[in-house]
Write a protein that binds this DNA or RNA. Structure first.
Length: 563
RNA sequence: UGGGGCGUAGCCAAGUGGUAAGGCAACGGGUUUUGAUCCCGUGAUUCGCAGGUUCGAUCCCUGCCGCCCCAGCCA
């Protein structure tokens, strides 16, 4: 897997800044708000910020943007740290919080007041909205806008001292109420919130707003390039305004790139949280969730996620990337890494009528057919086997290479068998196949290379390990659930199917965290939450590509086309 | 109808004055004891549209069209 990034427009700017000597080293930051779990969109930002620093020998801060106590939680802090580490990045001792700078931020606010560039406003929230104007009409100055500096200073000190209730006053920058850029219409700098903060406790009852805190925190940390998403583009004039007025030692530059959206998913923290609350998924780490925790539990390898965002690229164009691109990265990573095993998801009994009762043979199966150096494992073989229901068809089309009445098929790493008799229950359902095996066709024997069209997987019934296997599909039925009137209406009711599977014995001892390929089916990983030694639980990471499914689908479409 | 962005194949994405890289998907074919992997091959007379400048434009200019973001004391 190629992890070398192409030089996107941001890396080009950084390259140029190093070349020109504008900067001697690069400093970036990943600044999540700890109010939810990280998702696939954040992976892009993490890889960009940490990646760009790694590539240039620079450094990256993990800074929690904790300016809004009440919405933020320690659980999210811990999850975010775990997720960033798991993705493969290390901030070393550079873990900071916006709250670390509350003192400096307050001093900066006082300075703005002293410079006549900020004032305490006493309008209500509703009044403020009315005064702000609209997209097409300018706003009006607040009647409190021209309070004298001394009065502002006094009021600000008393706000900080806790003399006022929530919402009574707010500190605002004095910029331009007629600006076509709404962000410049005297934005709020501080609001009163009598809420204790996870880090600062009750030391403060006024908290800084994002724009003010972010711009200055970047400056305090010596961030050279502050990379964020497109919706902050028209905040940049404000970001720069703080730097222009306060002239901190370091001057960071904000650069915006487009968010990464994945088809058939949503990344709104609010909606994700609702899915959990309403019980549509089991939690933030449900394997169907587009969260890092969910994808990890599902079994996506971290390198696959990194590869995926590298291939998606960094640009300013809105993107909605197809699921197949992510799946390709996952399959590519697992194709090399995962050892092969056999498992039957929907079992159908096969009895080998000419195989001695009670006899057990031991087959050698390759752990990785594309890499013989990874050795073999033994698989028991006996008179009664399980095969996949889908691998038998009573009335099969010509192109069906699997088992059919009177037909032959090869059992992977074992013998060639022939289907002699189909046993049905009273309702006509096929419940058992009576077959005969050809003793001369055992894998490795001279006659084993006899030409047989199909090869299917199997598990010896008496040796099979029972397991629950969870088959996941996309969470939504439409590519862009965000455009639906109500995303609930496009939830995929079949996003999870649970089956009672039969596994080859070796899978009973598989270590957690190790993904394997169930041959002909897909990649599977042990569920980190529900698996037990005596009750195995596997998650399907992703299916294998399936050209037979395509042929079937095409055939069905042709039939319906009514020729 | 204010401001800020963006428009290159179904989805991503290079190229930015010299005659359209690459990946994913799709579709053919070959190898194969996974209908997997692997390998080979197929796609833009054209870069949102219309004019203009130029010997020559995806790239420069003008106009138009479409999509996204902004009216939290959220981030």
């Amino acid at each position: 897997m190629n992890e070398t990034p192409t030089r996107d427009f941001i890396r080009q700017i950084i390259h140029d800044d190093l070349e020109s000597g504008k900067h001697d080293g690069i400093v970036t930051r990943f600044p999540p708000e700890p109010n939810g779990y990280l998702h696939i969109g954040h992976v892009m930002s993490i890889c960009l910020n940490f990646g760009v620093a790694e590539e240039t020998g620079g450094i990256t801060y993990l800074r929690f943007d904790d300016t809004n106590p009440g919405k933020e939680d320690k659980e999210f802090v811990d999850a975010i740290e775990a997720d960033v580490h798991w993705l493969g990045f290390d901030w070393q001792d550079r873990l900071t919080n916006a709250s670390d700078y509350f003192g400096q931020l307050y001093d900066a606010a006082v300075r703005l007041v002293e410079m006549g560039l900020a004032y305490v406003d006493s309008l209500t929230a509703e009044e403020t909205r009315e005064y702000r104007g609209t997209l097409t009409e300018p706003g009006r100055n607040s009647p409190y806008r021209d309070r004298p500096v001394e009065e502002n200073l006094d009021l600000l000190k008393r706000m900080r001292a806790g003399e006022f209730g929530d919402g009574e006053h707010v500190l605002r920058a004095k910029i331009d109420m007629a600006s076509p850029n709404m962000n410049l219409r005297d934005p709020a700098l501080y609001r009163i919130r009598h809420v204790s903060h996870q880090h600062t406790g009750d030391a403060w009852c006024i908290y800084p707003m994002y724009d003010f805190a972010h711009s200055l925190s970047d400056a305090f940390e010596g961030i050279t390039h502050s990379l964020c998403t497109l919706e902050f583009e028209d905040h940049r004039p404000l970001y720069d305004w703080f730097l222009d007025q306060l002239k901190p030692e370091h001057r960071p530059r904000q650069i915006e790139f487009s968010r990464l959206n994945l088809a058939y998913t949503i990344t709104s923290k609010r909606k994700l949280s609702e899915l959990i609350g309403e019980g549509h998924v089991a939690g933030w780490d449900d394997p169907r969730m587009p969260t890092i925790a969910g994808m990890r539990r599902r079994g996506y390898p971290a390198p696959a996620l990194r590869d995926f965002v590298r291939r998606a690229g960094v640009t300013k164009k809105d993107k909605l990337i197809e699921m197949s691109m992510l799946e390709n990265s996952v399959r590519e990573a697992l194709g090399d890494a995962a050892e092969r095993r056999m498992a039957v998801l929907k079992p159908l009994k096969v009895v080998l009528t000419n195989f001695p009762e009670g006899q057990v043979e031991t087959m050698d199966a390759m752990n990785h057919p594309n890499d013989p150096s990874r050795g073999t494992r033994t698989v028991p073989f006996s008179r009664e086997l399980w095969i996949e229901q889908d691998d038998f068809m009573e009335e099969a089309p010509r192109k069906f290479f699997r088992l059919k009445p009177g037909g032959e098929v090869r059992l992977r790493s074992a013998y060639i068998i022939q289907c002699d008799e189909v046993v049905k229950d009273d309702d006509g359902n096929v419940i058992e196949l009576r077959c005969s095996y050809d003793p001369e066709t055992r894998s490795g024997m001279p006659k084993s290379d006899r030409k047989v069209k199909g090869t299917i997987h199997w598990v010896s019934a008496e040796h099979a390990v029972d397991a629950q296997v969870r088959l996941y599909d996309r969470l939504f039925t439409v590519p862009n659930p965000n455009t639906a009137d109500d995303y609930h209406s496009v939830l995929n009711p079949d996003s999870l199917e649970t089956v009672a599977a039969k596994l080859e014995p070796a899978l009973g001892e598989l270590a957690a965290g190790e993904a394997v390929q169930f041959e002909r089916l897909g990649y599977f990983a042990i569920d980190s939450r529900d698996d037990r030694a005596d009750a195995r639980v596997f998650n399907r990471v992703v299916t294998l590509r399936d050209s037979w499914a395509k042929i079937e689908k095409a055939a069905m479409a042709a039939e319906q086309g009514g020729s």
